[in-house]
């Protein structure tokens, strides 16, 4: 029995960009094998929260933080943590598909190669499993060497998911992964997310209440940097406890 309860826990997290207070004292946790949706109107800090979880905000010089983010029981901002190893364990998929300007194969092997996988057979295996998991294998298996930017938008995004899965992270962060796609590709990716939750802890930032309802098991509602509600998605959407949540769900704030 591990000493931690959930893969990722957030304790009293506050963040600032310069003088701007973005997140205000957030405490929540993300269960394993669950999709957690982070909802909220634009500018409420949901992307910031997500990026704090894999320390991608470290790149912003004016970023400051207080509070703890625990990954498997250790503080990811602690002195002993290697940020590069951390990011290996916490994968991320971005809003817009952003394949590297190289072949499909190289896109998927980029991560494993960084972390020391050199064996050709192993890399081939990783490519196949990752692409299969991302439901892309059948579409691209014959053109693994073609440049990734030539794929369609939906395929590119699934490739990005495969790329994130290639280093086998237990946690997957998704920053509005379908908002830049057409409805059909979006539906495919939503399906994929539901499938993936069997093996991964998925944290999904979304702007879209319906999507949260379809995909997620638990949800956090952020408003102006405050965590307003955090509970089962069904409960929040059916009987919001806070008037702000209700306003968001019914479309009065967004």
């Amino acid at each position: 029995m591990p000493e931690y309860e959930h893969n990722i826990e957030v304790h009293g997290l506050s963040t600032w960009f310069g003088k701007k207070h973005i997140l205000k004292d957030i405490t929540c946790y993300f269960r394993d094998n669950t999709v957690t949706a982070i909802m909220g109107p634009s500018g409420c800090g949901k992307s910031t929260l997500l990026r704090t979880l894999n320390r991608l905000n470290d790149l912003v010089p004016s970023f400051r933080r207080k509070g703890e983010v625990l990954f498997k029981g250790t503080d990811i901002y602690g002195v002993g943590t290697s940020v590069y190893d951390l990011r290996k364990h916490i994968g991320m998929v971005f809003q817009k598909p952003n394949p590297f300007p190289m072949s499909v194969f190289d896109n998927v092997t980029y991560g494993p190669k960084l972390h020391g996988v050199k064996d050709e057979d192993e890399l081939n295996k990783i490519v196949e499993t990752s692409l299969r998991k991302a439901a892309l294998w059948d579409e691209v298996k014959d053109e693994l060497q073609s440049p990734a930017p030539n794929l369609s938008g939906g395929q590119q995004q699934r490739l990005c998911i495969a790329r994130a899965l290639s280093v086998d992270p237990p946690v997957l962060l998704m920053d509005e992964p379908v908002s830049a796609l057409d409805p059909i590709s979006a539906a495919k990716i939503e399906e994929l997310i539901i499938e993936l939750k069997q093996d991964y802890t998925i944290i999904l930032v979304t702007h879209n209440v319906q999507q949260a309802f379809r995909v997620s098991d638990q949800a956090a509602f952020l408003y102006l940097g405050e965590l307003v509600e955090f509970d089962e998605t069904k409960r929040i959407l059916e009987a919001p406890a806070d008037s702000r949540t209700e306003a968001f769900i019914t479309g009065r704030i967004g």
């Binding site: 894999n54 991608l56 951390l86 991320m92 980029y110 960084l114």
Partner: peptide, 24 residues
Amino acid sequence: SLREASLALGATQSETSRKIVLSA
């Protein structure tokens, strides 16, 4: 976004700049 994708995979900044940014 390309830099972020690379960093999010656990690449160091120097690896990102050599392998992704420079090649892009």
